[in-house]
């Protein structure tokens, strides 16, 4: 009986060691979105292309991506060609021009091409805060029932696209 008691610290050590070991190599920057499982929050934004007021009633009913970008964001330059590729594959992308300037955004889309079904202006970044965005680029996957199912922070590329695509249904 007494001898088994001496093993308790060792067992403790093993359990803690296993827990720490399993946590190794995880992406410490990964942060789950509080919005996963919820509908897209209410919004009223002006479209960059048509100047019309757009609300959540105008959102597509099929699965789509919401992509936050801005001309001020260097990583968005990197991401843009891949978004064009996705658009060519027929993936619907709703662009949110986040904390940006209208004329610069128009110039960007004219020069680099427009992968978005529509682009909404979030000049003040209020919709970004409602979506829990921490920067750009950031992409949300909305499924066919209108629920947010996945959030990706950072650039979408060929490596991480398969994961994101898996949620798009």
């Amino acid at each position: 009986m007494r001898k088994t008691l001496f093993f308790i610290p060792f067992v403790f050590f093993l359990v803690l060691g296993a827990i720490f070991y399993l946590q190794l190599g995880k992406n410490t920057q990964y942060m789950p979105s509080a919005l996963v499982g919820n509908k897209v929050p209410d919004f009223k934004l002006v479209s960059l292309t048509t100047d019309q007021l757009v609300t959540q009633n105008d959102l597509p009913s099929r699965p789509y991506l919401i992509n936050f970008w801005g001309t001020w964001c260097p990583a968005c330059h990197l991401e843009h060609p891949f978004l064009i590729e996705l658009a060519d594959q027929g993936i619907p992308i709703l662009g949110i021009d986040y904390k940006d300037n209208k004329s610069r955004a128009e110039q960007w889309l004219a020069q680099k091409g427009n992968p978005y079904e529509s682009v909404l202006m979030d000049e003040m970044g209020h919709f970004g805060v409602d979506m829990g965005v921490t920067g750009a680029p950031e992409t949300f996957v909305v499924d066919g029932s209108g629920l947010i199912v996945y959030r990706h922070q950072g650039v979408i590329n060929t490596e991480n696209w398969p994961v994101i695509k898996g949620y798009l249904k």
């Binding site: 509080a34 919005l35 829990g132």
Partner: peptide
């Protein structure tokens, strides 16, 4: 804040 960014 929690509704948007989680308990984090």
């Amino acid at each position: 804040m929690v509704a948007r960014y989680g308990e984090f």
